[in-house]
């Protein structure tokens, strides 16, 4: 089943700047897709369109037009993991993870015991359950990223949109996040993430969409599209893809 379908998507900012031009792609349920490109290629704009934050005709989610989804219904289908978040109040990790339960609550409702149990499970999944009552202001950068993931996991949606999920992490935390994402992939979640790191895209994704100056350069399985030629065209600099044993290294 297709979880996301885009047909001839274009987007121009109110200032007149063209961000995306004629993008078409289909994402199968359970696949992990990297939106790969240089800064300003249109990755974040495409993510905003998928989220419904910016509007464009021609996007379907589970074969239903995105525009026909209600807000809460959309929140139950798709979760966002932003790059960072406002942390100006000392919410506990549990408070913050519970925010992911909002699409399941009534208009003015608040979390139930069942929601609390789900939030604890999400915290357990990212390895933060023992810190559930700690303040989010006391977390390290890596723990913040894990917390963002736990909120999205508590949302129990089929599709997760991740904006540069490992860009500000040290190698240890990067590995932690990647393991969690691999685990989510095993649970048949559809993961769509933006990155400019070709190694990460190759390591994590099943499919890669390369974006260059608002155009879709190519889309396919990573083995098909992540090649020396395509990457060199994408970044306009000499790139090399080489295999060492079972590993693939891009530099």
């Amino acid at each position: 089943m297709r979880s996301v379908q885009m047909e001839h998507i274009s987007y121009t900012y109110p200032t007149g700047t063209k961000a995306l031009h004629d993008i078409s792609l289909e994402i199968e349920e359970g696949s992990t897709v990297a939106l790969l490109g240089a800064n300003g290629a249109g990755k974040s704009t495409l993510m905003d369109l998928l989220l419904g934050w910016k509007h464009s005709q021609g996007i379907k989610l589970f074969d239903k037009p995105l525009s026909s989804y209600g807000r809460k219904e959309l929140g139950r289908c798709m979760a966002l993991v932003p790059q960072s978040e406002n942390y100006n109040f000392s919410f506990t990790l549990l408070d913050y993870t519970l925010f992911g339960r909002a699409p399941y609550l009534s208009e003015m409702g608040s979390p139930t015991e069942n929601d609390v149990d789900i939030a604890y499970e999400a915290l357990k999944e990212v390895g933060l359950a023992s810190y559930a009552k700690r303040s989010i202001t006391s977390l390290s950068g890596g723990e913040h990223q894990l917390l963002l993931l736990s909120r999205a996991i508590a949302q129990q949606s089929k599709v997760l949109l991740l904006d540069e999920p490992t860009s500000a992490l040290d190698p240890a935390n990067r590995q932690k996040v990647m393991k969690i994402l691999e685990h989510l992939h095993e649970q048949k979640k559809t993961l769509i993430f933006t990155t400019h790191d070709a190694n990460l895209a190759y390591e994590l994704a099943t499919h890669v969409a390369m974006l260059k100056q608002g155009n879709l350069l190519c889309f396919g399985t990573k083995e098909e599209v992540v090649t020396t030629e395509m990457l060199t065209t994408l970044y306009e600099t000499k790139m090399t893809v080489c295999s060492i044993g079972e590993k693939t290294l891009i530099y």
């Binding site: 989220l51 934050w53 219904e73 929140g75 966002l80 925010f99 608040s110």
Partner: peptide
Amino acid sequence: YSYRWKLNLLSLQEKTAYSVGLN
């Protein structure tokens, strides 16, 4: 008062609040 829990979500980035089903 009726917004007492939702106010938490409105302190987040607008896009995050939107992504969990708020307007």
